[in-house]
Design a protein around this nucleic acid. Structure first.
Lengths: 342, 342
DNA sequence: TCGTTGTCATCAATCGATTGCAATATACCC
DNA sequence: GGGTATATTGCAATCGATTGATGACAACGA
């Protein structure tokens, strides 16, 4: 384990002042003789000198580091978002501090504080979807000394840049598509109780039904958490209805449903049609592949970075910017076209 | 966007010196009157004061932050490792800086430098598996001014703490199990060309065969990258052999293989038995579920943190520590027991 | 009155860099 | 030789915290 080498030590070794060394190593336009320039660079390299970014950010008042808080890095969607965002940040010379909270508002708050005190220049927040007590978090975000961009979800009623997919539209598109394929009795499996996102998807589902005059039947709306076992449990009841199609409002929910369908010997789309959300990689394995509403995390990352970039540059207005992205319906093979109306 | 509040400002507002404020806010045992103590705390809270960790680490010479470099955060295994490791770090009051490199040694090097200059107290490295030119990286790691722990894989011949699963043993266990189930013609699908890990798994496979006197047949050893399409391509040739079983040396390789099997109408384990590695979540969907060699990322994280913790505390010997963990064979339903020998 | 003890609080140096301004040295001109 | 330009380099303050050394003041005993 080598020692940390400081600017001063380099200066001592070359016999010049720290200032000169700093100027040369940062390629500042300044008048240092070519000779000394070379000497400095050589000595610095030989000693494996690496500038202390900590000290530097203290005086420069920026760290060229951004932070990201996701609820769960083990989820495919967030991992992918984190990956894309990191790549994008690096392109502009920023490092990204990725953290994973576990989803509670308290953890989010803790992480946010950590990031701020560690001097990030801005934060991307994927927080606030679940209905927990977020007063402290809300308070903290509104007093943040650095720009924040809420991604994929938001703390309601907070003046802050937001970039997210239109979840209501996603629910609508999925349901609308099923209707167009001739389905009239469509169940849905959503997390409306504990997730804003889920609520919006449910609202979209209902709007699609309403639009064509189909009844909204509470007995066709099923509740599930965003976990496979939860959806698996809930699915039994779904299959007891007359539904010819199901809108599964998340990838995990779809997986739980499929598992149950499989066990009951039901075939897709023969016995029942399914539209999923946010296809997981498991997709490749399905026969047929799942028709789904897709949200490209890369697009989310791109826009989120765009907002951040503006704020960091001091452009970007007084008011918060709100970017709403449309999800896409990717038709594969899990929906049967019904030619006869029921 | 609020302003950043400094210690000095708080001091000014209460009419005391910065030192006093610092002492109180850090709960140092010192003689500041109860009265002033309260006042300071109240003013600090009211102003949303958050200490500047940057300034603090400069003088304290530690940031209570650790770094992690993984090749690809979008991979399930690494995401899970990152998640576990972060949780573990947080338990001990460390923040974890997660970064994802893309897998090339150059990117790894770049990230490593970033982490070091940003003052992390130690780094976890998941690097060095692929055969790229890693001279610069190797050089950098050996001159690191902070402790490093290599996780899951290693740069060969580098004196550095290592924590990893025994890949040779994994290959051996998988193959051994197939042999015990009566299989005599066992193919394998590995990434031996570009991965040390893959090579070790292959070695384990061969050892198992050798041990029972089965021939090692190069025509049964197939090469595949760690990507689904690559395995999918390679699988056709596998199925053209007489093999009654296949050892698929990674989760993605297994997925590619399964896809091909599915398309060719082969059933598992009826037509062919499969042992996989590192089951992905897709597991829940399979009928039958895949028998596989499993490596728990949580265990890896726990041991990696243990090593790091020792180094940080100044314990931990001169020489590097090397922890080798045994993977586990999880028997599910993808292997057929052959009662008759061929 | 002086010294002692104890309580409460501040001073000033430090961490490792950056940077505007001042300083030195050399050259050149008249 | 005095004055001015030009080419190099160094000084010292600064960022925001921490901390060992030190100071101010009151009360008390001899």
């Amino acid at each position: 384990m080598a020692n940390k080498v400081t600017l001063k030590q380099i200066a001592q070794e070359v016999g010049l002042s720290p200032s000169s060394v700093s100027l040369v190593l940062n390629n500042r336009p300044c008048r240092i003789s070519e000779e000394n320039r070379k000497l400095i660079k050589e000595v610095a390299a030989r000693n494996h000198y690496v500038p202390n970014q900590i000290a530097r950010s203290l005086v420069m008042r920026e760290s060229r580091t951004l932070g990201l808080i996701v609820p769960n890095i083990e989820s495919r969607f967030f991992a992918s978002l984190a990956g894309s965002l990191e790549k994008r940040c690096r392109e502009d010379g920023y490092a990204l501090f990725i953290t994973s909270s576990g989803g509670s508002a308290d953890d989010d708050l803790e992480l946010l504080r950590q990031l701020v005190t560690r001097g990030v220049d801005g934060v991307f927040l994927v927080v606030g979807d679940e209905f927990s007590d977020d007063r402290a978090l809300r308070e903290e975000v509104s007093h943040l000394p650095i720009p924040a961009v809420m991604v994929d979800r938001a703390i309601e009623g907070l003046e802050c840049d937001k970039v997210m997919f239109d979840h209501e539209m996603g629910g609508y598109m999925a349901t609308r598509y099923l209707i167009e394929q001739g389905h009239r009795c469509i169940a849905c499996l959503v997390n409306a109780r504990r997730s804003n996102t889920g609520r919006k998807r449910l609202a979209g589902y209902e709007r699609a039904l309403r639009e064509v005059g189909l009844p909204i039947d509470a007995r066709l709306e099923f509740e599930s958490e965003y976990y496979i076992p939860s959806a698996y449990e809930a699915s039994e009841a779904v299959l007891a209805t007359d539904a010819t199609a199901v809108f599964a409002s998340s990838d995990n929910i779809a997986l739980g449903l499929l598992k149950r369908l499989h066990e009951m010997g039901k075939s897709i789309p023969g016995d029942i049609s399914v539209v999923s959300y946010d296809n997981s990689a498991a997709d490749v394995l399905f026969e047929p592949a799942l028709t789904a509403i897709e949200q490209d995390p890369g697009v989310l990352a791109e826009h989120a970075f765009g907002c951040m970039s503006k704020r960091l540059a001091g452009r970007g207005g007084r008011r918060a910017e709100e970017v709403v992205l449309e999800p896409a319906l990717i038709v594969k093979g899990s929906v049967l076209e019904l030619t006869e109306c029921s």
